[in-house]
Simulated scan of single mutants.
Amino acid sequence: MDLTDAPRRPRAESIVPMINVVFLLLIFFLMTSRLAQPDPFEVNPPEADLETPLDADATLYVDKAGRLSFDGQDGDAALARLAELASADAVLQLRADAELEAATAAGLLRDLSAAGFARVELVVSPK
C-alpha cells in the first residue's frame, strides 16, 4: 500500500495583477490625454444676458489684435479655409476677444459674408 501524497500540479500564474496594471495604465492615459483640440490662443468673450445654445458647424477664433485662427490656419489662410466650408445654410461660431475693436469685427463680418456665410454666432459669457 502506497501512503505517499500524490504529486501536486504546479499552480498556474495569476494574470489578475497584469489586468490591474493594464486598467491603471488605461485610466492614466485617458485622464492625461486631450480629447478636444486646444484653443489656438486665449480668448476672453464679451459678456451678455443671452443664454441661447450655440449651433455651429465651424469655429473661428479672433484675438484682441484681430489675429484669426481656424483649423490650424492663421490669418488669410484661415479665411481661405473657411471659404471652402461655406454654404448657404452653414453656421459659423465666432469666438472673439472682448477687447476686439468694433471696426475690426465689422470688417471681419464683411469678409465672412463675402466668403459665403449667411449666419455667424458670437460666443459670449453670461453676466
Results as ranks from 00 to 15, higher is better:
94 L>N: 13
22 V>E: 01
66 G>N: 07
119 R>C: 01
114 A>H: 00
42 E>W: 09
101 E>K: 15
47 E>M: 05
30 L>E: 10
88 A>P: 03
10 P>C: 05
45 P>E: 00
24 L>I: 09
16 V>A: 11
90 A>S: 02
91 V>R: 09
17 P>D: 07
79 L>R: 02
105 A>L: 13
84 E>N: 08
6 A>I: 08
74 D>K: 10
46 P>N: 01
1 M>I: 15
104 T>Q: 15
119 R>W: 00
23 F>K: 05
38 P>M: 02
112 L>N: 01
46 P>M: 07
17 P>M: 03
101 E>G: 04
32 T>A: 11
29 F>I: 15
51 E>Q: 04
41 F>H: 06
53 P>I: 08
116 G>R: 02
48 A>T: 02
77 A>D: 14
2 D>C: 00
123 V>W: 03
109 L>E: 08
95 R>I: 04
57 D>N: 10
101 E>M: 05
127 K>I: 00
56 A>I: 13
48 A>C: 04
84 E>L: 09
20 N>R: 12
6 A>R: 15
102 A>M: 11
87 S>V: 02
5 D>C: 05
89 D>R: 10
12 A>Y: 10
122 L>T: 02
65 A>V: 01
21 V>G: 01
126 P>L: 10
58 A>Q: 12
31 M>I: 14
42 E>G: 00
2 D>M: 03
22 V>K: 06
115 A>K: 05
54 L>K: 00
56 A>S: 11
32 T>S: 08
13 E>I: 08
33 S>D: 10
113 S>C: 01
24 L>G: 13
58 A>S: 09
101 E>P: 12
105 A>Q: 15
76 D>T: 13
71 D>I: 06
101 E>S: 12
42 E>D: 15
77 A>F: 01
103 A>E: 14
11 R>F: 02
79 L>Q: 03
58 A>Y: 12
3 L>F: 11
113 S>T: 10
70 F>T: 00
101 E>R: 12
80 A>N: 06
127 K>V: 00
43 V>M: 10
106 A>E: 15
98 A>L: 02
67 R>H: 11
32 T>R: 14
27 I>D: 05
91 V>A: 01
110 R>W: 09
102 A>W: 07
103 A>C: 03
115 A>V: 07
107 G>P: 02
107 G>E: 12
31 M>H: 01
18 M>Y: 05
98 A>R: 13
106 A>L: 13
48 A>P: 04
94 L>Y: 05
40 P>C: 12
64 K>M: 12
